[in-house]
Design a binder for these strands. Structure first.
Lengths: 196, 196
DNA sequence: AAGACTAGAATGAACATTCGTTCTAGTCAA
DNA sequence: TTGACTAGAACGAATGTTCATTCTAGTCTT
């Protein structure tokens, strides 16, 4: 029930394909990346690719699901290891910043790809589970009295909007220093904007 | 000098094409939109389209430049009619909210299209003139003592990040009410996050 | 030897772009 | 005023390429 439309057997070959596709998609875009490109970059033949994946879209879908699941479980861990909304939200931002630095392609794929554009019927990124979790952290803060009363989605945007914007700027090459350098500053702003 | 790589003569026919292309690009994406699609939607023939525009990319480029110029002059007007950083930033957000409601396609094109993906050599949206202007509003506020001292780009992200996120949510169909309904709330958060 | 996997050539559809032609409106000559 | 001439605007069928996908012939693995 929790699961995915496109379950894919994990083998070294599929990992090769997914890794190559992630890089190509985020560097040149989905439509500028041809199957021959992926064949070259992954050293997996056309036949094998179509043995494992239904079609090109299936590769993107599988990628998307893998990455969403990964973020989802990271956020769940944060919920498990931090008690207050304050700590949870801060940890979430710190995690996103780390991920952006260590695997920019993952973050770029999650945030920038207009999924509806090339994955028909794909719900928008911002309503995927991890982003719902972020919203829930803020709402919990409102219930516990840490966060002032207001429209939940507005509060969530206030808390995470600044950080997400910095991530975008970093990925677009506007920011030179690594994101964690800005964590304290942006977090102070974020929390001040909603704290009671 | 201020101008554009792809100057296009403005005629009824080109307006037709640009209008149709804007809608199609933002609804289905650049790569899912074929020239025949644009021909049908604009009632302008293939030959004429290629008479006015170098190629499909030229249409997108022309669209982008038109929209950027339009936002740029709106922001300049805000700078001319509002004195304080507080008023300018608030007016900027109000303007973006209005534009999103009245012409979602314009906003969608400006914010979401991964321009580098289909317009090679296109600098990222977030370093286009209007976004620089937004940053300058915040910096001016720091100089006038309205905004607390901090890294300029972080301050700008804090002020505008929440609003931009709401715009994204609205365009992705997550928000039901029109954006101006949220203006007061998000602005309070935004300003509180950086005010001295 | 059977099944899973790999390979890469072959296929056919879709598409951006070109090109030769037609149309339109303006200008000029008589 | 009429008719000839011109320039550029508009047209859309034809072209050639690209690319996702399929197919056939193998090669491992157990």
């Amino acid at each position: 029930m929790a699961t995915t439309t496109a379950e894919i057997k994990r083998t070294p070959a599929t990992e090769q394909v997914l890794g190559a596709a992630l890089n190509l998609f985020t560097e040149q875009g989905f439509f500028n990346t041809s199957i021959p490109d992926i064949v070259k970059a992954s050293s997996v033949s056309t036949g094998s690719i179509y043995h494992y994946f239904r079609d090109k879209e299936g590769i993107a879908r599988s990628l998307y699901e893998t990455l969403v699941e990964r973020m989802e479980s990271s956020f769940s861990e944060i919920e498990a290891t931090h008690a207050t909304a304050h700590d949870r939200c801060r940890a979430a931002i710190a995690l996103l910043f780390e991920l952006t630095e260590q695997e920019p392609a993952v973050m770029r794929f999650m945030l920038f790809s207009r999924h509806k554009e090339f994955i028909p019927d794909q719900k928008p990124v911002c309503s995927s589970r991890p982003f719902v979790q972020m919203r829930e952290m803020v709402v919990a803060g409102m219930e516990s009295g840490e966060v002032r009363e207001m429209t939940p989605i507005v509060a969530a945007s206030a808390v995470f909007g600044g950080a997400l914007r910095l991530i975008q700027l970093r990925l677009d090459g506007i920011l030179d220093a690594p994101l964690p350098d800005y964590l304290d500053e942006i977090w102070q702003c974020a929390w001040r904007s909603v704290a009671v």
